[in-house]
Design a protein around this nucleic acid. Structure first.
Length: 582
RNA sequence: CGGGGCGUGGCGCAGUCUGGCUAGCGCGUCUGGUUUGGGACCAGAAGGUCGCAGGUUCGAAUCCUGUCGCCCCGACCA
């Protein structure tokens, strides 16, 4: 492609409103343009990168035996009603009504496609002989994000690869899941992303295993917990905290005293008022677990983790109690609950056990207790790991320490079970003529996020650093003076020869000064830059420079196109080899 | 949904507090000329109902009211 014939609107300055590097660079390099909050046009350069990512995803899905199809983004609302997900999605589901003749038709734009694909399988699959099968598509998804942000990282319309596996047994599901997991590793390797596959919270909708593919980045929205020593990695919501000692309840001479804490109903307010540290306090949370109230204690500076509470208590449904329940149980308004004299079961996180003398709510409005001692003033029914992991916590798998890191989620694999196949009657007859719901898995990749995450983690002060696999163009030809016929003659010849050799070439044929071309070249980040200037041309040389290297090198003009095509090919193989080794 | 910030030619901004010449600067664009290895220089030109609506005033980019949009933090996020 010749620069003068396409549209690459590079920008010298950072547009107002763009803050994180990927957003700034995608706008400045002319990859995308914003239409409104959460909706971006992919300009020619950005589209090429997106298509390359898409193609890598497609190749690896095909390689893993998944079958591509394309479902409508427009869906009937009743499909979502049948699985109860109209409510589950709430405002995120974009739904509307249109009139057709004298009828009102209620539609929704698909935010994901479990319902549609399961309905499809229900219609066409009825025998175990047709299973297993994994179906996938690469399609635009629609979600009404409450707050779109971070450029293309969180948008209300995005390109997603979604795959769904249907199996006859749990063993089958495990095999399908593993295939997708391995395919995801190859995809992200080929894209040149430095990622982590982390254990993720599978949520209350069933299924017991889930992994997220995370790219570590300071601007990521997710938090992952990572142990550098053993490689343990998990989403913060899921991460276990390693073993902690609970000392035996100690005797204390310090008396328990009641203190006035008017209107101080939060840890922050109380610690400020009393001049104490949050880790000297105990946070008392009242939950309703399967209709019954239970108290959960965590140290004041810790955050309770609902998933862990649910699993520890062995309950199906656990949620924070509403104010009226809290008042009834504690006899005090919200914010003043404490374990002393509490008439309901008390669970506590291990770290609560290490506080010798604590400050707790007094179960009376506007009052707290100081000098509260476990064993004397209250008893803990059961200790467990009930809180979110924090920086420096012990690793659950080795004697290392956990670190909290921000990350961008680029993929998610999930064992679904039979939730959708039951709701939508996707059943098959087994060899014993028994009817069973298909056992499903679902697997998503945010294709736009691959691009954004790559840029977020691969750039320098001058611009993007594309890997060969995703680069919109592999090689940039930069004739420094388009008005010198001998320069353009070489440029045009190289352009033709390299294009014929199958290299993606961009020819900067603009009548611009060299400085402008160099700056733009660095900004858009094409891996291999070839400068054609009168200076080196006189010696029969071309100047070449890899975007990620400091220094330029020279190669003879004679036979240059063959040499350059070989260099591009070698670089392509390099990234591919990295993925097949993994 | 709570909190904060911002809307002025294509882009980045000043001017708004304290109302008053023809609304300014840099970049970009166009014309002519000189230049040509890291965002050139000279001369000239085009391009703005100051987000929108209403109000106050002799007079509004500037003050008041409403409204729309964008960005950030938090809550939410199959």
């Amino acid at each position: 492609m010749r620069w003068s014939q396409t549209l690459i609107p590079t920008m010298k300055e950072t547009p107002e409103g763009a803050e994180i590097p990927s957003h700034v660079l995608m706008l400045r390099a002319g990859l995308v343009g914003q239409l409104m909050a959460g909706a971006y046009t992919y300009l020619p350069l950005g589209l090429r990168a997106l298509r390359k990512a898409e193609q890598i995803v497609r190749e690896e899905m095909d390689q893993a035996g998944a079958i591509e199809l394309l479902m409508p983004a427009l869906t009937p609302i009743n499909l979502w009603q049948r699985t109860g997900r109209v409510d589950a999605f709430g405002n995120v589901l974009i739904q509307f009504q249109v009139r057709r003749q004298n009828r009102q038709v209620h539609l929704a734009l698909g935010p994901t496609h479990e319902e549609v694909v399961t309905d499809l399988v229900a219609r066409h699959v009825s025998s175990y002989r047709q299973l297993p099968i994994t179906l996938y598509q690469i399609q635009t998804k629609f979600r009404n994000e409450e707050r779109p942000r971070f450029g293309v990282l969180r948008t209300s319309e995005f390109l997603m690869k979604d795959a769904y596996s249907f199996d006859t047994s749990l063993e089958g599901l495990n095999a399908s899941y593993d295939k997708m997991y391995r395919a995801y590793c190859r995809i992200f390797d080929r894209c040149g992303l430095d990622y982590l596959a982390v254990e993720a919270e599978s949520g209350p909708i069933g299924g017991d295993v889930s992994h997220e593919f995370m790219v570590l980045a300071d601007n990521g929205e997710d938090t992952v917990v990572h142990c550098a020593a053993c490689g343990y990695a998990a989403n913060l919501e899921r991460a276990d905290v390693g073993p902690r000692e609970v000392p035996a309840a100690a005797a204390s001479a310090e008396p328990r005293t009641k203190i006035d804490t008017p209107r101080a109903g939060s840890i922050e307010a109380v610690s400020k008022m009393l001049g104490c540290r949050p880790d000297q306090m105990i946070k008392t949370l009242i939950y309703v677990a399967d209709e019954k109230p239970v108290a959960v204690l965590v140290r004041g500076d810790h955050d309770a983790n609902e998933g862990k509470i649910r699993r520890s208590l062995g309950k199906a449904k656990v949620e924070l109690a509403p104010p009226e329940v809290i008042e009834k149980v504690t006899g005090a308004p919200v914010g003043f609950a404490g374990p002393v004299g509490l008439p309901i079961p008390i669970w506590a996180d291990y770290d609560v056990g290490t506080i010798a003398s604590a400050i707790v709510g007094a179960n009376t409005a506007d009052a707290h207790f100081r000098g509260v001692v476990r064993g004397r003033d209250f008893d803990v029914g059961q200790f467990a790991d009930l809180r979110n992991a924090g920086d420096g916590d012990p690793c659950p798998r080795c004697d290392g320490r956990l670190a909290l890191r921000h990350a961008i989620e680029v993929g998610h694999v999930f064992k679904l079970g039979t939730k959708y196949s039951e709701a939508l009657s996707a059943r098959f007859l087994d060899e014993k003529e028994q009817l069973h719901p298909a056992i499903m898995g679902c697997y998503g990749i945010g294709v736009n996020r691959i691009i954004a995450a790559l840029i977020e983690t691969n750039h320098d002060e001058n611009g993007i650093l594309w890997p060969m696999s995703l680069a919109p163009y592999e090689l940039l030809l930069a004739p420094l003076n388009v008005n010198q016929p001998e320069v353009m003659e070489v440029a045009n010849r190289l352009y033709d020869e390299l294009t014929h050799a199958g290299v993606d070439v961009l020819l900067d044929d603009r009548d611009q000064r060299p400085g402008v071309k160099f700056k733009d070249a660095d900004l858009i980040g094409i891996p291999l830059r070839v400068v054609i200037g009168g200076r080196s041309l006189k010696d029969g040389q071309l100047e070449i420079k890899w975007r990620w290297k400091e220094a330029a090198e020279s190669i003879p003009l004679e036979g240059a196109s063959v040499a350059l095509a070989d260099m591009v090919q070698a670089e392509r193989n390099l990234s591919h080899a990295a993925s097949t080794q993994a």
